[in-house]
Design a binder for these strands. Structure first.
Lengths: 266, 266
DNA sequence: TCAAAAGTGTTTGGTTTACACCCATGA
DNA sequence: TCATGGGTGTAAACCAAACACTTTTGA
């Protein structure tokens, strides 16, 4: 596992947390939460942003609740912004998880004990239904921030996922499945790659998500035929070999392709 | 619009309804509901099962609530069974609807007045988040049943949808969109067609869902290449012209195809 | 015996796959 | 000057779309 982002202890947050634990249920849609699977891409690795929880050895997806008068999608965007600083990002609901046993009384009890809260019938101990959202972001433009219940907020390689609370591992798997499916009929990469990138960069992205090798020449032909890329005059310098062209997304065409739903398969 | 199924007035249900209105919130997951878009196919028409509400001129999707200790998917199956009598049916969650303004205070007020209930802070007047499920069923094997809040339960042609409560029209549109998308990478038709059917039957189904004509010969080649159909010795008799072969689904292959996700496009 | 629908190909053009050669660059 | 990856091309296999002829049937 890669080095973690620096611990932030938020000791000043104690009061806030207590208020939240006591009165949170008044401000939020009851027994309903949102969990975000935030994908980032760096050094040919697909990563997701995870939180290490206080009061538990386990990790969790960035999540939150829905305000009483808040749209679901807005709530998800707020969570994304709080953890990464990013706004206006592709963020999509992909599944609701509502199995009857999605609770973790042990963890919640520990937390309530820690803050000297009354455990009986506490609103957090009820079964929650959670909506899973997934986002694709540019790893290098994020500033991961812990939330009050976590000690670390880190990018973790997809093949190094630690023990997760609740059914969060299932949520991640479903997100990845959806992402791969999506890739078949929609373009992907805007927000996940830097503004300018080489053909190899975007191919690595596709290969990583699909977890298979693609022929370099065939990939180029196919991705260009989608008309979502613009070739720049500029080349990438300072590499040990021939300087590759840089590309950027043609955002207009990209949006059209997103809406129309591409066909075909990789 | 086609003739409606016979009105059932459920006068004996008054007591039950009052109990539900008074105490329903104790038994159910709070402020959360399920709505089902149940597609059926008959006479080359795609239909959906709708309820005409008491106390309103509008119609609604068959829906319900989730028991405190009930899985989301189980709740959806129960709703499907109550309205159609069917079990073991393809039923899939496709979206959660949680915009902040999905309420219809006027309609709920009318109903509460009718039953002399206290309107103040009534649990049904809160904003609900609802999970949309869609099902594909064999029209001819259903026995549509009203629920206590509706006077009719009828199959309505997709192009003759009446005024709907809340955002139910949006839910229908999204279901249809998902169905069309699904058709691209998954087989469809089991449960929606009778056990035995002709090549024309299944082609009509595809044409109806996709809302476009498909070449008869190309369709046959393509659908057979999926290996999900079994040709029967039997032929359909009593037609004015040449007797067509009957087919049935190879359920084993069908399930495999469902899980693998077909590729390609129609 | 005829109209209508079923059964069965074939041709054509495009897309996907597999594979090969030359070019630019820094070490 | 050489190892490495970039840029470009082509043949074969495969698939989708357009289209035609023959067969069966009841009226």
């Amino acid at each position: 596992m890669k080095p973690l982002s620096k611990t932030q202890d938020h000791p000043s947050n104690n009061k806030l947390i207590k208020k939240f634990l006591k009165e949170g249920s008044h401000f939020h849609h009851p027994s309903f939460s949102i969990d975000c699977v935030i994908f980032g891409f760096h050094e040919n690795q697909l990563k997701i942003l995870l939180l290490k929880m206080h009061h538990s050895k386990k990790w969790a997806l960035p999540g939150g609740f829905v305000g009483k008068d808040e749209d679901l999608d807005d709530a998800a965007h707020n969570i994304l912004k709080s953890r990464t600083g990013l706004t206006n990002i592709f963020l999509q609901q992909f599944h609701v998880f509502g199995s009857q046993n999605r609770e973790d009384p042990k963890y919640v009890n520990q937390m309530l004990d820690f803050y000297n809260m009354n455990k009986k019938n506490h609103w957090l101990k009820k079964r929650f239904i959670t909506a899973g959202y997934y986002a694709l972001v540019d790893y290098s433009r994020t500033f991961p921030q812990v939330d009050p219940f976590s000690s670390h907020c880190s990018w973790i390689n997809l093949n190094e996922i630690p023990a997760m609370i609740l059914d969060h591992k299932i949520i991640i798997d479903k997100a990845l499945f959806t992402l791969r499916l999506q890739l078949i009929y929609q373009p992907i990469g805007l927000n996940l790659l830097p503004k300018k990138f080489t053909m190899r960069d975007i191919q690595s992205l596709y290969e990583t998500i699909l977890n298979k090798k693609i022929d370099r020449r065939n990939f180029q032909r196919k991705i260009l035929s989608l008309k979502i890329l613009k070739k720049l005059k500029e080349k990438k310098k300072g590499l040990p070999h021939k300087s590759p062209h840089l590309f950027k997304f043609d955002e207009k065409q990209y949006q059209i392709a997103l809406n129309e739903g591409l066909k075909g398969s990789w």
